[in-house]
Design a protein around this nucleic acid. Structure first.
Length: 776
DNA sequence: TATTGATTGTTTTTT
DNA sequence: ACAATCAATA
């Protein structure tokens, strides 16, 4: 009899799944069955160890991951799975605060997203009336505030350096920012973790209640937790830490967002008796791909040593595309994609990854030109659309009319003749009387200098909100949305416009309405015990916390996305573009030197590269451009680019090249952490010549690029070159290892770096080094 | 109050 | 190069 929960696991996986009590750290390499372990462990706890499902908490980072986990648990456990607590950190925090009515927040508090946060920071800074020389950008202030929240520091606990003037302003801004949130009865993302944590820390009885409640806590993507999240988890565990954390320090790519790899690196310091299980067997990628990924990551300075391996033999070698510029890069990638398709890989099984969004343009252009269908996958989009956010703001006002931010957003949307000036007067009045804007609207006659027209418009607006508040707040989401659409006249105005764009927006609003109705459908008839808040509030919470995580990945299209976006996904073929110094190890022009602290940053770039590579199942293609349009210091212009040092970390055999490269076999270079020798940032372009993946033979879908016997630049000697390379003249038919056949059109005088122009049959005219040509 | 030209700042962005 | 945001106009 087969057992769906314990069979089909390898030994280490089973060890993790069956671990009984106490802290457990699962170091799960890319593609090693991490989710599988998590899901099967939960199922095992419930079925075989008699843990009640409602006493298990699983925490993930994305809604997508949470959804996936729930789904898979349902398959293993059936209806029992509905009682499990499977949440993102933020959804859990929101639920916690609603249940406990914590931190003085109303039950149906709105959640401010990144956009709201920025607007709030802006208004707070404006309110502070800073002098020119002490002004800081809202971005800078917000980034500080976020960092403090990641460390669960309240405004009064913040300490900044004496000479850190920006920090001092930011501290003051933080205090005002928090009071503004409190006044509005709202919470931002950071609060959703910080407040539960602070409440638990402060209140022992509350802490006991919650830690008793959970018999087991499991955390996914543990490497991405920030200090506040980790502390929250530790508190929730209580004295008996049945805590299982799963993660991969090599895939920690959100340091800049407050994630702290120290959490995973130091887990066994925090829990001395922690059991550590390493999952290193990879079930996703072919061996050459894993070898490449290992080669890149093994040079990271701080990591827990591990090495992915696979039982699978064979696999196609890596391919490298060397382009003249970003346009040609796109062209080469497009061709490579077509080639792959000709070998049976579907469009949707191909992904083109890049470091920066700016790189997508030329890639898109090339794909379009060659008629390849594609999508650019971004983190979010639908719920970030202005019109959607407008409706959401109305809905939030219906629940919480005192949310000034939301009121400001829609007070003149659709335009009702209330301009900046009038709003400023209203704000001044409210500020002076310490009223919310909504309350200020009730005393319009006292507000100075309003024209009768504006007064009437504002009175009507107040009616609208008050009416929605009274009627809509407890209704189902779908009806609420419909009411807003009808009463706000948003739709009507858009219909009047009649432009292409407005049609698009109407479309989005209808989609939003549909989403709300769908949400209602999905709700249980009787409200469940742990959902104290009205359905509309839950709907808003959901869209606030939901990016577009479960965005439909369209069929039949090549996916274009940043390396960050690619985390957690997999594709048959992956192209990583822009393997150039400054782009893939990304560096800002003024921080070109990788020193000390930036060394940690470089580690992160390395991990990013590693994450990208390990997305590939069968084929991995790397590309770079020799020069690229950049907009550095003195405006835009083409700049020569150097190949990424990460390329230099890859053994040439992986590209199907014969023999190791003698010149770079032994790494000289920087000394730091033993075993973590940073690679040489300088690779000569010529070393890459002839590495091109070219026209595939019919047998495999990517040609192993061939590399001519390597010669060190220093001992390069004319006489060492094969005789047939010496005398090329226009009209000669030649063969290039990867570009295939062509005809010479012109050539320079002979010399070690002689270049000739060749019209290739499949690639058009190119200039190549003569020594990589053979007479056909 | 909406519309234009100047100005600015350009990594990544799970929630 | 380019978009998004901002200050000055119609």
């Amino acid at each position: 009899m087969s057992d769906p929960i314990l069979d089909n696991l390898n030994d280490t996986q089973r060890e993790a799944v069956m671990h009984r009590e106490g802290p457990l750290l699962v170091l799960a390499g890319a593609g090693s069955g991490k989710t599988r372990v998590l899901v099967h462990r939960v199922a095992h706890l419930v079925r075989d160890q008699g843990v009640p499902p409602w006493r298990i908490l699983c925490v993930t980072f994305t809604n997508k991951a949470a959804g996936e986990m729930r789904e898979r648990l349902h398959l293993l456990l059936g209806p029992l799975a509905s009682d499990l607590w499977v949440f993102t950190f933020h959804a859990f925090g929101a639920r916690f605060l609603r249940i406990e009515a914590g931190a003085g927040l109303p039950v149906a508090f709105p959640i401010y997203d990144a956009d709201d946060q920025l607007r709030l920071a802006k208004s707070v800074l404006a309110e502070m009336g800073l002098a020119e020389d002490e002004a800081i950008t809202p971005r800078a202030a917000l980034s500080r505030i976020d960092r403090w929240k990641n460390d669960a520091l309240l405004p009064e606990e913040v300490r900044v350096g004496e000479h850190d003037e920006e920090g001092q302003v930011a501290t003051a801004a933080y205090a005002r920012y928090q009071s503004a949130l409190a006044r509005a009865g709202a919470a931002d993302f950071g609060d959703l973790v910080m407040y539960p944590l602070r409440l638990l820390e402060k209140d022992e009885r509350l802490r006991d209640r919650w830690s008793d409640r959970f018999a087991h806590i499991l955390v996914d993507e543990f490497q991405d937790t920030n200090p506040a999240q980790y502390r929250l988890v530790r508190l929730l565990c209580g004295p008996v830490p049945n805590l299982c954390v799963v993660g991969d320090d090599d895939q920690a790519i959100y340091r800049w967002r407050g994630a702290d790899v120290a959490n995973i690196l130091g887990f066994d310091r925090d829990y001395r008796d922690a059991r550590i299980v390493k999952l290193e067997q990879n079930y996703r990628s072919s061996r050459p791909i894993l070898d490449a990924a290992n080669a890149v990551i093994s040079r990271a300075q701080w990591r827990r040593p591990k090495r992915l391996w696979t039982e699978r033999d064979g696999g196609v070698p890596l391919a490298l595309l060397v382009a003249q510029d970003e346009h040609e890069e796109g062209e080469l990638i497009a061709r490579a994609a077509k080639t792959a398709r000709a070998q049976g890989i579907r469009w949707e099984e191909i992904a083109v990854l890049y470091r920066t969004n700016a790189q997508s343009r030329p890639l898109e252009a090339a794909l379009r030109e060659q008629g390849i269908p594609y999508v650019v996958v971004r983190g979010t989009s639908f719920y970030e659309r202005a019109e959607v956010k407008d409706v959401a703001a109305y809905l939030r006002l219906a629940l919480a009319p005192r949310s000034d931010l939301d009121l400001l957003r829609v007070v003149n949307r659709p335009p009702r003749g209330v301009g900046e000036k009038s709003v400023a007067r209203l704000k001044a009045f409210a500020l002076q009387r310490e009223l919310s804007l909504f309350d200020a609207l009730a005393e319009l006659h006292r507000v100075a200098d309003l024209t009768p027209k504006v007064t009437r418009a504002l009175a009507q607006f107040r009616e609208l909100i008050a009416d929605l508040h009274a009627r809509v707040a407890n209704l189902e989401a779908g009806i609420a949305v419909q009411e807003v659409l009808e009463n706000s006249q948003l739709l009507e105005r858009l219909k009047l416009e009649g432009t292409d764009e407005s049609v698009d927006r109407i479309e989005n609003l209808m989609q939003f309405l549909a989403a709300a109705r769908e949400f209602d459908e999905a709700q249980p008839r009787s409200p469940s015990r742990r959902d104290p808040e009205p359905p509309l509030a839950r709907f808003l919470e959901r869209i606030a916390l939901l990016g577009e995580a479960d965005a439909p990945t369209p069929e039949g299209r090549v996916a274009l996305m940043t390396l960050h976006c690619a985390k957690g996904l997999e594709f048959e073929m992956v192209v990583i573009s822009g393997l150039e110094e400054g782009i893939l190890p990304y560096s800002r022009p003024w921080e070109r030197e990788w020193q000390d602290e930036t060394r940690a940053q470089l580690d992160e770039e390395r991990r990013l590269c590693y994450v990208g590579m390990t997305r590939a199942k069968r084929a991995l293609t790397l590309s770079l451009a020799r020069r690229r349009m950049t907009y550095r210091d003195s405006g835009a212009g083409y700049r020569p680019q150097r190949p990424s040092r990460f390329l230099g970390d890859l053994p040439p055999e992986l590209f199907g090249l014969p023999g190791a490269r003698e010149t770079r076999a032994a790494p000289p270079r920087l000394h730091r952490h033993p075993g973590a020798v940073e690679s040489d940032p300088i690779i000569e372009l010529d070393e890459l010549d002839g590495w091109h993946a070219g026209r595939p033979p019919s047998s495999s879908f990517t040609v192993p690029p061939r590399r001519p016997p390597k010669q060190d630049a220093s001992d390069l000697d004319l006489d060492q070159r094969p005789p047939e390379e010496k005398r090329l003249k226009p009209g000669d038919r030649v063969l290039h290892a990867s570009l295939g056949e062509g005809t010479v059109t012109s050539c320079d005088s002979a010399g070690p770096d002689t270049k000739v122009s060749v019209a290739f049959h499949d690639w058009g005219e190119k200039r190549v080094l003569a020594r990589f040509l053979r007479k056909a």
